[in-house]
Write a protein that binds this DNA or RNA. Structure first.
Lengths: 337, 337
DNA sequence: CTGTTAGCGCTTTCAT
DNA sequence: ATGAAAGCGCTAACAG
């Protein structure tokens, strides 16, 4: 491996001079600058960023910790983060917690030992609190994205889950539905609680009684909803619509409905939080509350970098609105039902 | 920042002893081991992997260089890579070239300066050759994924594009189509050439003349196919089916068709390479040649790690078959057309 | 079983 | 404008 000393020797200067031309720092005569540059080319010299990090105490690496890299929401978010990171000269370490606190914990340790300059952190749940506190204790700046964690104060970028949920449910109510089921994410996750709050608010606002039987909790990953649906469909006043708390939950519901020979929206309306990106272009089907995922990531990295530069500033909280996109999966309830 | 020396001092041992308990290396009395461990806990000591990398000349970091992180194919591939990396104790640096050679070049420089132990490399095109050569010249192991680059010999994991394309086109022919258009990726990319070869082979095998008018080249990203489609639809013997060389191209086609008021498959059959994952569950619509994306990433990282351990071994080439999945977007041609 | 020395590749500080 | 010395946090090699 060619080092700064190899370059120095060949160019008949000191290592310090080479370092200066690499970093464009200090005063250097144009002549030696050119000479050094030439030698660097000849030797195919590439600075060792690890060595640099060690002395500078900064790695120019950011961690992107998300809970599901296969979910288009996080994928688009990652793209936004990547663009911003590249723009500001940061590298991105990818961590996928898989909605799993154990994996998250492992990644936090990895993050700590990597001495990253900051973390864009989508918490797996409220119990992520200790992980976040660990980061804080080690002075690692972070910004929470997509989800809040009670007891943690930091920069934050979240969507307005409650309002988005309310819009979605009121849309269903507007179509005549009054028996609306909620298949929610884990209560451990702030967005799930908020979405349920929005759901309940919408019911209240429209004088509909909340029925605990119609509220179920699942993970935020795809799952088999068959048993759940069978229970709901056996009810004497069965639900005519389902609000799924995220896109993958909706996918699970729809698949189960299909397997049971039921059609959407004819037999059951389905709406959900988060769009399915390209999918929805293909077959504009799912009625959703869409969030600006790219901005979550892009703004997140920007906030993070500002935080790194000024650790003392007051934490900022950015709340993006959710946008109701009405498509085919929700339909007016035939009054004779 | 607490270092190995802080721990050593507080535990009344040398730094070397601490290093030994961290790495479980050498012989240490159980007593001192416990003492050191206790002090590490008390001090919240976390080893600095940068310092470690510097002396070990190995970073335990792998680069994942893909061309489009928003494409479900690469997203699933990334997931596979992430799982394998985590399993083997490697971290993953995320690089998204965006099908752009300039960005790819930047990332290669970044990769070089990061001194990663290896790269999982999905080349943006044949011109990636110089980037790959640069890696080779610097002794950075890599395995090519998804795409080949002429002139580069290395470990490789690709899909059988030619055969997949042939299957797709023969499926259309079996449905009675004889005027089949191809909307291809850039000729600069090996998969595009292979898919075209498979398309042509299928035509030949079935005695259908190839019509250059029906072959178009685009990027591998979503695009507006309106102009192209208008040209095709004006022809006296217009195509009745389109083979899109990847999923995003298909999305572009279908969106344009919809905007023009045409329906799939009634007015035009559409098939493509690469599935749209979760999407297809939602609305099993698109007929595709599906590739095992997760395995591309997972096996890729495994190959890469083996390569790192044994740089001398012969390069291996793994070719995954493509699987034809017939859904709704392709239909039998009404004979009266 | 444990400690000392030297050095990984770089930059900061202080000289010249 | 340039260089020498020291040190970032760690471990290999050797010594005891």
């Amino acid at each position: 491996m060619v080092t700064i000393y190899d370059v120095a020797k060949k160019a008949n200067v000191s290592a310090m001079t080479v370092s200066r031309v690499i970093n464009n720092t200090g005063r250097i005569s144009e002549k030696t600058r050119q000479k050094v540059k030439k030698v660097m080319e000849e030797l195919n010299y590439v600075p060792n960023s690890m060595a640099r990090s060690l002395v500078l105490q900064e790695t120019k690496i950011l961690s992107l910790l998300i809970t599901d890299i296969t979910n288009p929401f996080y994928t688009t978010l990652a793209r936004g983060a990547e663009d911003a990171a590249k723009q500001y000269g940061y590298r991105l370490l990818l961590c996928n917690s898989d909605e799993n606190l154990e994996k998250e914990k492992d990644y936090v340790d990895m993050i700590l030992s990597t001495r990253v300059d900051g973390v864009l952190f989508a918490p797996a749940g409220d119990s992520s609190r200790e992980h976040l506190e660990k980061l804080a204790q080690h002075n690692v700046p972070f910004v929470m994205i997509d989800r809040e964690v009670p007891g943690i104060s930091s920069d934050m970028i979240i969507g307005n889950s409650k309002d988005g949920a309310r819009q979605l449910v009121e849309h269903l109510i507007g179509l005549g539905h009054r028996r609306i089921a909620l298949i929610n994410g884990p209560h451990e996750v702030s967005t799930a609680r908020e979405r349920q709050a929005g759901y309940i608010e919408a019911l209240k606002l429209n004088g509909i009684d909340e029925d605990p039987e119609l509220i179920a909790e699942a993970g935020y990953k795809t799952f088999d909803a068959t048993v759940l649906l069978e229970r709901w469909l056996r009810m004497h006043d069965r639900p005519t619509a389902v609000f799924a708390a995220n896109n993958f939950l909706a996918v699970g519901i729809i698949r189960s409905l299909r397997n049971m020979g039921l059609r959407v929206p004819d037999d059951m309306s389905v709406v959900c939080f988060d769009d399915l990106e390209h999918v929805s272009v293909l077959e504009p089907f799912l009625t959703v509350a869409s969030q600006p995922a790219y901005s979550f990531g892009n703004m997140g990295v920007r906030l993070l970098i500002e935080r790194i530069r000024n650790k003392g500033a007051n934490p900022r909280k950015i709340i993006f609105p959710a946008q109701l996109i009405i498509r085919q999966s929700s339909a007016r309830l035939p009054s004779a039902k």
